[in-house]
């Protein structure tokens, strides 16, 4: 059971990372990065690291995404080329 959970979570992690890399729209890329952080947070909770998981949920998915979105609002929304 635990093995299946681990495998599914790791595959989801890799898939979300690749969608972050492929997204042309920067806002979409940041939202996908937030999703990636949340999945990572689940993996860490599952591996006996709750302290790290709490911090990653608040910082990786919350603070970092907001900082990215603020910068995108000031610059260009979509990636050229």
């Amino acid at each position: 059971m635990s093995v299946v959970f681990d495998a599914v979570m790791l595959l989801l992690l890799i898939a979300t990372a690749i969608t972050v890399a492929r997204a042309r729209d920067l806002v979409a890329a940041v939202v996908k990065f937030g999703l990636y952080s949340l999945v990572l947070c689940l993996v860490w909770q599952h591996r006996g690291a709750p302290d790290v998981a709490i911090t990653e949920a608040a910082v990786g998915a919350g603070v970092t995404s907001v900082l990215f979105l603020l910068t995108i609002a000031k610059t260009a929304r979509s990636e050229r080329g």
Partner: peptide, 8 residues
Amino acid sequence: SNLIKKVL
């Protein structure tokens, strides 16, 4: 090439 993508 996009700097924001690089930081991501």
